[in-house]
Design a protein around this nucleic acid. Structure first.
Lengths: 129, 129
DNA sequence: GCGCATTAGATGCGTGCGCATGTATGGTCT
DNA sequence: AGACCATACATGCGCACGCATCTAATGCGC
């Protein structure tokens, strides 16, 4: 079990750092930023609640609030008040956001394949037995 | 591949947060702090170089330098100059450090079993096929 | 309608991180 | 020996995070 955890830590660190570097250099996005855009593109919806996204990317509500603020400042998403419940906001991906995501997605997939593809098929399988 | 990565992210987040909470509350240790102590106890050595530990716990050298400083302030490790190469230091675990580790280890294992034991045997096995 | 607990999201604050750099020592080449 | 680059760790700085708290809007009981 400890071994499984260390494997998980190692893989997480490797992939995360690689994503941070590649996405950062080529598309000015962090791994979490990309993951948020990815979620929004992948499920056809265009409106998201902050807490919904926070759960999806395993960040706190406050972290998501700031992350959305960064994306908004970059013009990749927009915030609009939810009319039905004016406490909440809807996060909508913009055309720029979709474009940035489309540009970054290949990089993202490439990194996953490169880093996980190397060590994963063997090591990810080690645990259950 | 994307699914594997998301599974990895989810498991990492779940375990990490649980460790942070449990180790923090019960033993005043972060996951990384515990991992460093764990490495030092597990391999019989009593002297470690900073970079060696940094690699083991997937942190930058600067992060490890500060982490060691925190552990030293808490009296769990001590730094001593390496006579052979006076640029480097040796990090030694103290008796207090061993005691703290011994106290925290059961908590650590319990969290791993609880969190990974739930979802892991199934999900960790999904990738290689 | 009027309080009051609840919920959604924003924000102040402290902390740990990585990057770049600083400082000291070691090794090498001439 | 002296100049020069490399190595080992420490430190200044900025950033993203979580926790606690704040603000605004909702809903519920009366």
């Amino acid at each position: 079990m400890v071994t499984a955890w260390r494997t998980l830590l190692a893989q997480h660190a490797a992939v995360w750092c690689a994503l941070e570097r590649e996405l950062g250099e080529k598309h000015h996005l962090g791994p979490s930023e990309f993951e948020v855009l990815d979620r929004m593109v992948e499920s056809g919806q265009d409106k998201y609640r902050v807490q919904e996204l926070a759960d999806a990317v395993h960040l706190s509500q406050s972290a998501l609030s700031r992350l959305i603020a960064r994306l908004e400042r970059a013009g990749l998403v927009s915030r609009s008040i939810c009319q039905a419940d004016r406490r909440g906001i809807f996060v909508c991906i913009t055309d720029d956001g979709r474009a940035r995501h489309a540009a970054a997605a290949p990089t993202h997939r490439a990194v996953l394949t490169a880093v996980l593809g190397d060590a994963a098929p063997a090591t990810l399988a080690t645990v259950p037995a």
